[in-house]
């Protein structure tokens, strides 16, 4: 057992574990168990994908951004404008276009912005997002301005399954499949040598420079890929809900996804899943009954997480498991 090489150990660590199927089984079980909540479930899945894209830059590459909704919005508006102005309603190619546009925005803004760090970067990402939001507000002929583009309808998925407006069954399964594909891409990326070097940048920037890693290029590429994934999430949002408006680009969405990710635990892939489910289920049921008290509650939770549980729910679970293992060992 002890004669593993480092490469073998790495490979072992990155092999699929049995528990990694659990979220997908749960998602399928939810499909059958809660047929009346599939519209809500679809939103949860979209949020998971969005949070996953943020995890790539924030959790792995260590880029602190307050403007990731820019890419979500870019994808959402791409799908919306293609459908309303060009009659391009084929869903899969629409998603591809969303990914390309958002990825391009990410690549360009990444090339420009990622020269800076810290507070300046935070401000720049925030400004980029607000800039896009204002542009969408101004270009009313294309984007519908403040009201957005309502009442969009999309073609059949693969020419077979049409989006159902009332029950969201096909939307749910469609979004789930896209999420699975994007997740596999993200997982492969993170466990590749590329992903390892991103973690290296996060952990010790100076040393990565010293060993000659092309730090900025790596960061820009990660940023662009993450932007493309966020764009897919945005495109799914437009397709599933049939509308797009300025809210997809707002600070609230950007801050919301950070909250989701950090609540779940960033830098650990499944944090996006746990965080999105925990946050959105609570919000869905509590926010309707007690809108203000809900905001007070989430505020207190954020403060507590920032002060005491920096690694979120998954981090907390790991700590508890570690403690129990220690106790049973002693």
């Amino acid at each position: 057992m002890a004669s593993f090489t480092a490469a073998e150990q790495l490979a072992r660590r990155h092999r699929f574990q049995w528990w990694e199927t659990l979220p997908w089984i749960a998602a399928l079980a939810a499909f059958f168990a809660f047929p009346n909540y599939l519209a809500f479930g679809t939103q949860v899945l979209i949020t998971i994908l969005f949070a996953l894209s943020v995890d790539l830059v924030l959790g792995y590459a260590g880029i602190v951004t307050l403007g990731h909704a820019a890419f979500f919005g870019a994808g959402a508006y791409t799908v919306g404008m293609l459908a309303s102005h060009f009659g391009w309603t084929e869903p899969l190619s629409g998603l591809l276009a969303a990914a390309l546009v958002a990825g391009a925005v990410g690549l360009v803004s990444g090339l420009v912005l990622l020269r800076t760090t810290g507070l300046t970067l935070l401000m720049l990402t925030l400004c980029t997002m607000t800039l896009l939001e204002q542009a969408a507000n101004m270009g009313a002929a294309w984007t519908g301005g403040f009201d957005g583009i309502p009442g969009l309808s999309f073609g059949k998925i693969l020419g077979l399954f049409s989006f159902d407006v009332l029950y969201f069954r096909s939307q749910y399964l469609y979004v789930l499949t896209v999420l699975l594909i994007c997740f596999l891409i993200a997982r492969t990326l993170i466990y590749s040598s590329f992903g390892q070097s991103l973690t290296g940048v996060r952990e010790n920037l100076l040393r990565m420079h010293a060993v000659g890693a092309p730090v900025r290029a790596r960061l820009v590429i990660a940023y662009a890929i993450s932007a493309a994934l966020a764009g897919v999430a945005g495109g799914l949002f437009t397709q599933a809900t049939g509308f797009v408006n300025l809210a997809v680009l707002g600070l609230e969405r950007a801050a919301g996804v950070l909250i989701v990710l950090i609540l779940g635990g960033y830098g650990r892939l499944y944090g996006a899943f746990v965080g999105a489910v925990a946050y959105m289920v609570l919000e869905h049921f509590l926010a309707k009954a007690y809108p203000t008290a809900w905001q007070l509650g989430i505020g207190i939770v954020l403060v507590v997480v920032a002060l005491y549980a920096r690694n979120g729910i998954l981090g907390l679970a790991e700590t508890l498991r570690g403690k129990r293992r220690q106790r049973s060992a002693s």
Partner: peptide, 21 residues
């Protein structure tokens, strides 16, 4: 910065909600 952002956004929520309540 991330923890600071998180903490202060939480504080904003608490302030906004307390005033509303």
């Amino acid at each position: 910065e991330l923890d600071q952002v998180l903490f202060t956004i939480g504080l904003v929520f608490v302030m906004t909600a307390s005033v509303t309540l």
